[in-house]
Amino acid sequence: MKKALFIVLLCSVWATIPAQAQKFGYIDTEYIFSKMPEYQKALSEIDKFADKWSKDIQDKYVEIEKLQKAYQAEEILLTEDMKRDRQKAISDKEREARDYNNKVFGYQGLLFEKKKELMKAPMELINRAVEKVCLQKKLNFMFDKASDFVMLYTDPRHDYSDYIMEELGLDTKPTATNGNPTNKTTTKPK
């Protein structure tokens, strides 16, 4: 009885609340990032770190290869204790190289942390612009077309990427590549 009364009361309250349509839009952060100098600079910095760390790791493996060749060349002259010591030294160097590789390129390694640090500023710029555009356009939701969220269909009328780019002071004109303009249109939602 109480449950039925609660449902009737809930329905009557719900019926008195005016239904409002939720306003939404989407942006393409991949497209916006491609136009942002801050993002391009961050990518360049990430590449520099990745190249440096890759070279460091490669140098470690070159050193290991030299130790292995030296060991193979001198193996017949070494005592069993000397052989064990050399093999242990080589194995320690291999472990050290693997550990360093994992520390740099592994899950949440140095490269991951550096990406997170360098991408923070461009992401904050986009987030502030999204918030401002959502308030100006009275949007309830803003989705990212470039995210893992699957968008099976997107109506260009709801694409607010150009508004975000204008807010960031970026050029909203499509860029031409090999004489073909990009798929990006400059149609803005109303």
Rank of each mutant, 00 (worst) to 15 (best):
G109M: 00
V13C: 14
W14I: 03
K66I: 15
K55D: 04
E30T: 06
M123K: 12
V150R: 13
D28G: 07
A129Y: 00
T175I: 11
S44R: 07
Y31M: 10
W14G: 02
P18S: 00
I46V: 15
W14F: 14
A146N: 13
S147N: 13
E131G: 14
E65V: 03
K115S: 11
I76V: 09
N140F: 13
I17R: 12
P122G: 04
F49T: 01
D159A: 09
Y61N: 13
K103L: 14
Y61E: 07
V130L: 09
K35A: 07
E96L: 11
Q58W: 04
F112E: 01
K190A: 15
Q58L: 09
K23L: 11
T154I: 12
G169N: 08
A176R: 11
M36H: 04
F141M: 05
F143P: 06
T172F: 01
D92Q: 10
S147R: 10
T182S: 14
Y39V: 08
V8F: 11
E94V: 13
K83M: 12
V13I: 14
E63L: 12
T175H: 02
K41I: 03
A97T: 09
M82C: 00
Y160R: 07
T29D: 07
E75C: 02
K173R: 09
R84K: 15
D47Y: 09
K114N: 12
Q58Y: 08
D155G: 03
E30Y: 10
N180V: 15
I90S: 10
L78P: 00
M1G: 14
I7Q: 01
N102Y: 08
R84N: 13
V8C: 10
A70K: 13
K132A: 15
N180D: 03
A4S: 10
L5R: 05
F49D: 00
A50H: 03
D148E: 10
T186S: 06
D148G: 15
D56N: 11
F149W: 08
T187G: 08
T154H: 10
D85T: 06
